[in-house]
Amino acid sequence: MRSWFEWVGAMESSVGLRESLNAYPIMLTSHVIGMCMFAGLIMMMDVRLAGLGNRSSAITQVQARLFPWQMVGFAISIVTGLLLLWSDPMRFYSNFYFWLKNLLLVAAGVNMWIFHATTYQTVDQWDNDPSPPFGAKLAGVLSIAFWSAVIVVGRMIAYQDLVPQWWRDLGLRG
């Protein structure tokens, strides 16, 4: 794993991005814009699922009509996120919050997948209900929790000294 990160970090494209004065502000600012679009619209969908908001719209409508815009936000976030990783892999390799963020991304994805494979199959029966069944509410609340945690931990990447002692004891050097 470490050698893979070192390999990327030594590449000309990585060094170029790392040493550019403008690349980092542009990548990070675009990452935030992508996050606003993606997480914002995901949360608007989640509050509908949880029965907390946007209750005038049918659930399938919220799901289908916001989806393309969520994907635009997701694409911006993923591309700029991968570029940030590419620009300085060793910084992220040794960062506790970077790995925790990846774990939470997987958790958010699994939650989405389980919901679509189970509760969402019967959506026709409760599409217009202001208060959807328990399974949908649970998926909505979990999604809000997981994506919020992704945002929290993503911001914490900047605070690489505020990490648990056991992580420091691992002695990963960036």
């Binding site: 949360m43 608007m44 946007n54 049918a58 916001l66 919020s148």
Partner: peptide, 29 residues
């Protein structure tokens, strides 16, 4: 971090209406 979570909620609420103004998004309502 709380500022960023609030930002996501705020941005979502703004965007959902702006998309509707643009004629996309939640057009059935």
């Amino acid at each position: 971090v709380m500022h960023l979570i609030a930002l996501a909620v705020f941005a979502g609420a703004i965007l959902v209406v702006d998309l509707r103004l643009l004629g996309v998004g939640l057009t059935r309502v």
